[in-house]
């Protein structure tokens, strides 16, 4: 049994509820036990790091210290949380003049952290620790014929390069294969969606996501799966703007990888948050029913 301190992050409890709804039963099914971090605070994402370095490290140190007390490593499903925690962790452990002073000051204020916690993403746990063979054994409903573009985005694979390739990772593609789906060779898999810029800057936002959607369409993907709330949000919500601007109606469903996993593991469809999709899923269901051919 694998045990982790679960760090949900802010997005997963609002705009990406279907990530958590599908991820928790999937991890349970695969034998991963989670306990939610007691009174966790926001990681600050890219905002705090842009404004105040000490504050950014402090808020993350508070979370790391709570996890250290529990004696378990952190599981963080959001890419921004994952990287913020990892970055702060590295800083607090580097023993530079600045970080030593901060660790001391935190200690004076009741936040003790000795650097023992590791931060993991669910994709890492599923592909490295649980493994594809264990997953294949549990598959009840093969996703035969479904063409899936796996989109990794940036912050899980870069800059730490810990469990996959920074430019052309494959762990999520391998998971999709294990479920019986067909991974498409998706060249834009680690090209940026614009992150938090996309919601505010219409022009670059639409352009960056247009590139991602266009490439998925070119490779005949039926769906794009993501591992990050913000990537998911951007790819899904820019489609209407893009349809107007570039005169191209993609209508490609954007799902979390855990939703497709849950489906293959035989978890009831209704419990996996599919109804929260803003893009119609009809074509996908039809394709799955017909085992890959849309008649």
């Amino acid at each position: 049994m694998k045990n982790y301190t679960y760090y949900p992050g802010c997005s997963i409890q609002t705009s990406s509820k279907h990530y958590e709804e599908s991820l928790l039963p999937v991890l349970k099914e695969m034998g991963v036990e989670l306990e939610e971090m007691e009174d966790w605070n926001c990681c600050g994402a890219t905002a705090s790091l842009s404004v105040d370095e000490t504050a950014s490290a402090t808020i993350n140190a508070r979370n790391l210290s709570i996890a250290e007390k529990s004696g378990k490593d952190i599981l963080a499903p959001c890419a921004a949380c994952y990287l913020s925690l990892k970055k702060a962790n590295q800083f607090l452990k580097e023993e530079s003049e600045k970080s030593t002073a901060l660790v001391e000051e935190l200690k004076k204020n009741g936040i003790e952290y000795t650097g023992k916690v590791r931060i993991k993403h669910p994709l890492e746990v599923l592909s490295q620790e649980i493994g594809l063979d264990a997953l294949k054994d549990k598959v009840q409903r093969k996703l035969t014929g479904l063409n899936v573009a796996s989109y990794y985005g940036c912050q899980v694979v870069r800059p730490y390069l810990e469990f996959d390739d920074p430019d052309y990772p494959h762990s999520m593609d391998d998971l999709m294969s294990a479920l019986g789906a067909t991974p498409v060779d998706y060249g834009a898999k680690t090209r940026c969606c614009g992150g938090s810029l996309t919601a505010n800057l219409e022009e670059p936002g639409a352009r960056l996501n247009y590139i991602l959607l266009k490439e998925a369409q070119r490779k005949e993907a039926d769906v794009i799966v993501t591992l990050c709330p913000l990537c998911h949000f951007n790819l899904e919500t820019t489609q209407k703007k893009i349809a107007k601007k570039y005169n191209q109606d993609f209508n490609i469903p954007i799902l979390f990888f855990s939703q497709l996993m849950g489906l293959a593991l035989g978890i009831p469809k209704k419990k996996l948050g599919f109804s929260r999709s803003l893009i119609p899923l009809k074509a996908m269901w039809e394709k799955l029913e017909n085992g890959g051919t849309n008649e």
Binding site: T46, C154, Q155, R158, L197
Partner: peptide, 11 residues
């Protein structure tokens, strides 16, 4: 401010 923090340049 236009850096989306994708770390492509960095790696």
């Amino acid at each position: 401010w236009l850096c989306a923090s994708c770390y492509s340049c960095q790696v």
